[in-house]
Amino acid sequence: MDTKILQKKYLPLTEAAYYVLISLNKPRHGYGIMQHVKEITNGRINIGAGTMYGNLSRMEKEGLITPVAEESRKKVYELSEKGRTVQKLELERLEELLSLGKTEMGDS
């Protein structure tokens, strides 16, 4: 898919969407993502269950993530190729923000 279209449609990601996508580099279910995000941010980011469910349903519909299994009534998701591309584009965007910020502020 065309890079420009993806950028225009999905970027910038919200903080919740960003963390959902990076967590799904490995297969996880909704609550697993919530716990993982809490852990890697040292408790700073707590994604609510409603926000999590909303993001997962939307991202599944948009094809950014794919359900790979169903374990005891829980859907396990993983990044799709499209989701991986979007995540990569977001990282590039953030890296540019960071490096330009550092250059302009004289800290590089």
Binding site: H29, G30, Y31, M34, A49, G50, M52, Y53, G54, S57, S72, R73, K74, K75
Partner: peptide, 22 residues
């Protein structure tokens, strides 16, 4: 207490909330 208006909630929805202690 929280009111929710989700899109097409399945088993997945209820499990997620239950696991999060709701």
């Amino acid at each position: 207490y929280c009111w929710d208006y989700p899109a097409m909630p399945g088993d997945n929805y209820f499990e997620l909330f239950k696991e999060d202690g709701w």
